[in-house]
Every structure is written in C-alpha cells, then in structure tokens.
Design a protein around this nucleic acid. Sequence first.
DNA 1: TCATTTGGTTCCATTTTGGAACCGATTGGG
DNA 2: CCCAATCGGTTCCAAAATGGAACCAAATGA
Lengths: 154, 154
Amino acid sequence: MKWENVGEMNCSVARTLSVIGDRWTMLIIRNAFMGTRRFADFQSQLGMTKHLLSDRLKRLVEVGVFTREAYQQGRYEYRFTAMGDALYPVLLSMAAWGDRWLDEGKGAPVVFVHKECGKPMTPTMACSECGEPVTVHNVIPAPGPGLMTINEKA
Amino acid sequence: MKWENVGEMNCSVARTLSVIGDRWTMLIIRNAFMGTRRFADFQSQLGMTKHLLSDRLKRLVEVGVFTREAYQQGRYEYRFTAMGDALYPVLLSMAAWGDRWLDEGKGAPVVFVHKECGKPMTPTMACSECGEPVTVHNVIPAPGPGLMTINEKA
DNA sequence: TCATTTGGTTCCATTTTGGAACCGATTGGG
DNA sequence: CCCAATCGGTTCCAAAATGGAACCAAATGA
C-alpha cells in the first residue's frame, strides 16, 4: 500500500495521520500553537526548505486546519481554524510523552500551566463522561456507526 | 535542516516526533494496541513493504517502545513496554480528532467505552491537578527546567 | 519428506526530501 | 523617486526514503 491511500482506510487514526502524519506537519502545528503565523517565521524557526513548507501550508489550508489571510498586499498569515485548534490535545499528548520518556534527564523544556486552577500540570487523557483518567488498561474499543471492516483495503 | 536532526531539538514534541513521526510508525502502534504482535500480521494488516516494517520494528525496539520476544524458534512477538503503553493517549487524541473532523458523515468507526463507568466516551484532555478539560484557550506554556532556547539549531 | 510459513534481505524503480538559486511584487530608507 | 531588502514563493537538481518484487534460510506441519 502506498502512503497516499492511507487516508482512505476506515480508521480515524489513519485519516488523522493522512493530514498530520508526515515528517514536518506536526512541527508546523507546534509552532503555530506557539504563535507563529507567517511563512518566513515558520521557515526560519523550523529550518525546513521553502518548497516543502509551501506545500505543507497549502495542504493544511485545503484540509481546513489553517486559514490564509493577507495582512498586507501579497503577505499572508496562517491561523488556526476551529479544526486546527482542536489539534491541541494531540500536541499536548505528544509533549507529555516526550517529557516523560525522552527528557534525557534534563527535565521538561516547557511546563503547562492550567489557567483555571493556576497549577503546572501534566496533560492527562480523561473520560468525557466521568472525568477519570483513561489508559490502555481501562478503555475498550467497540464497533462504531462508521465501521465496515477494521482494515479494509482497496 | 534534515529530518534526522529533528530529535536533537530541545522540544518534547520534536523528540516524540523523531520516534513516532514518520509515515508508518503510528499505524504500527495503532495495530499493536488492537492486539497485533507478529511481523506477518502487521504486514498483512497494514499492507506495507516488509523491509520498511522490519526497519520500523527494529527501531521501535531500540528506542524501547516494543520488546521482541521469541514465541517459537526464530518467531517473534512485538509487545509494548510501559513506554509503549504510554503512547495510548497520543493514539486516542488522534482518533478523537479524526472522529470529530474527518468522519465524512459516516460516524466514528470505533467508539471507546470506559471500563470504570461503562459509558461510550470521547477521550478528553484534562488537567492532572484539577481534572477539568484543557484546550488551547486555557493552558499557558511556561519555561521548564530543561529549557535552553525554544528553537536551538545545530 | 516436502511444501508452507515466518521473518526477514536484496535489488531496482519511483517518489519525496534537501539545498540552492532564482524571481516578481511589495516595502522601507534616503 | 530610486534602490536595496523582504516576503512568499517556484524551479532545478542531487540525495534519501519508499514501494514492489524476487529471493532466502530456518522452522513447522502434513
């Protein structure tokens, strides 16, 4: 199977990966969450080549993660849509995993402070119904309405 | 910058992506969470070429996400370590985003049931301190102990 | 015994990425 | 107004990664 067909799998994870699953896209999104908006800033911060950045931004706009708005003649800002904002938990879960398992003994580069309670926190996956933390041990996947086969191919 | 240097950034997200951020790795991990353990099963379920699968599994074992244990002479099973289990929230956050934003009107292929409360739920990112949901609007990133510069290069 | 399964490796063509040069439109400085 | 610099790209080419198929040795199973 080719990568370009991954998005056609009947799987939410595969479809998500078809949008954010290539080498640079999540780093672009990370920087966007840190406030970066403009082409040149993304490029200098990430050190990626311009044509790749151009492609990725174009694609994220097409998919609906970013809007592209001129802030001057021919100068654009890329800003999250609601769909883009909703990627924040994906970013947080990656940051939390890297902090815990790949910190090389130096501690977390960034800590997250929850505005409401004012405390530095670890982003934690919880049940929307009862609020308790969820892990691989207490979640059971079950067939949903959109299921046909778990791994349909072609 | 080349992709191989991304893992050296002083950023937990970048380091996480250096492990799980290539085309196939998260799909391998998805299937592992669904119970797949063996080379041939990963290969037939994912439809990826054998040498790529071989590379990815080798790497995930090196990094510490999987163990590789013989279940017969020369036959191996790949199983999550604690480090690997801890990737579950990343998978859940991707599944939740895909369900919400890329379902193509067909509904979620899989729903998650929380064992403790017994209800189908939406995996939600919450504050470890107060348990309230967190979003891009109520989290403030702050410098942590491992920070030197936010985007050190080279 | 002999075909089949498993878990790969090797080879090659195609695709993607990385690096650099180039470019037109816009802007800011003098 | 003129000129240099900036912005947001595009084009070209080399290098690296991926995709497809063939091949292979060890172990199994009939």
